[in-house]
């Protein structure tokens, strides 16, 4: 079970309104909960618990289930958003299979997943271990917490705003990055970072890494808190170097957190719409388009609604598959 210590702390009984601190575990004092002194009649006709699910369930039906079914149905039609959709069977999907633009957007998404999931997880792992086991021990937990907060900060930024910040820093003329390169005599490295089709994707990836690193870092640091310190001490006494401890103690111990971070970030990377919209609008010449953006383009720019729905459905299926993997793993963890 991968429940973190914090959850346990948060859900453990604080003090109920009437019972003065039920000491952890044993039966709570059977003193009456005299909320307002009124003696309640002993009705045992209780509201069924299922009734509590009704408001949430109806909302789920209206906002998620029905629209998702509609989207899937639309993916089997040709429709421009007005008039009646025309049923075309699987035509949209066969067209997708042959659509080079779609496949290109898919390849870009692999790069995006690298930048939003794989790289931040790897860097985050090293950083978390270093902060926890090195900085924290030698400079105190406050230093570690401060550094963690600095690295986490971009995570709180709306992606649209992060995009504005960066597209201005990366601007070809009078952008801060080019100015910085000029100032240190590296004019040769100045680029049109987002406008050059060969570089745009890498620039976008750089921004994503900057935004994303804080997320795995924070997860790993909290995961490390439940690792038995004796393991580290034993390794240290054995003379194991920092790297050896990292490989043989840290990584195996927080494997559940690594898995969760990687999976959540991968799912997020398939929904990279906001980054792309603000930074490049999929350009130049489709060089940074991802399926998430491609479906939006089909819906609202070229109004090929059926086709856009097919793209979105494929995206949804991939994410559902990833979620299933996550749930399987989760339930296995609970048993073992």
């Amino acid at each position: 079970m991968t429940r973190s210590a914090d959850v346990t702390a948060a859900s453990s009984p604080r003090t109920g309104p009437d019972s003065p601190r039920p000491a952890s575990g044993p039966p709570a004092p059977p003193e009456p909960v005299e909320a307002d002194g009124v003696k309640r009649p002993r009705r045992r006709r209780e509201i069924p618990y299922a009734l509590f699910l009704v408001p949430g369930g109806l909302l789920l039906l209206a906002v998620i289930i029905v629209p998702f079914v509609m989207n899937t149905a639309l993916s089997l039609t040709e429709w421009e958003g007005v008039g009646t959709p025309e049923f075309v069977g699987l035509d949209n999907y066969t067209e997708l299979a042959r659509d080079t633009e779609f496949w290109a957007s898919f390849r870009h998404n692999i790069a995006v997943t690298l930048a939003m999931a794989v790289i931040p997880t790897c860097i985050g792992l090293v950083l978390a271990a270093g902060l926890f086991d090195y900085i924290g021990k030698r400079f105190g937990p406050r230093t570690a917490a401060f550094l963690r907060a600095c690295i986490y900060l971009p995570q709180v930024l709306p992606i649209a705003v992060a995009g504005i910040v960066w597209s201005w820093i990366l601007a070809p003329e009078d952008g801060a990055l080019n100015a910085l390169l000029g100032a240190v005599g590296l004019e040769a490295l100045q680029q049109d970072w987002l406008g050059d089709p060969r570089r745009a994707l890498f620039s976008v990836m750089g921004v994503m890494v900057w935004v994303q690193i804080g997320f795995p870092l924070v997860i790993f640091m909290s995961g490390l808190q439940r690792v038995d310190p004796a393991l580290y001490e034993a390794a240290e006494i054995d003379g194991a170097s920092w790297w050896r401890r990292f490989w043989h103690v840290t990584i195996p111990q927080i494997r559940p957190e690594i898995f969760v971070a990687l999976l959540w970030c991968t799912i997020a990377s398939l929904k990279a719409f906001a980054f792309i919209y603000v930074l490049t609008k999929g350009g130049p010449g489709g060089a940074t388009s991802v399926p998430s953006y491609y479906s939006f383009e089909n819906f609202f720019d070229t109004t090929r609604v059926g086709y856009g729905a097919a793209v979105a459905t494929v995206l949804a299926l991939i994410i559902i598959a990833l979620t299933v993997v996550f749930l399987r793993r989760q339930s296995k963890g609970e048993e073992g």
Partner: peptide, 13 residues
């Protein structure tokens, strides 16, 4: 599932 589902697949409907 409802939470992880991409909004892209809900937005048009």
């Amino acid at each position: 599932m409802a939470n992880t589902l991409p909004q892209e697949a809900l937005v048009y409907p």
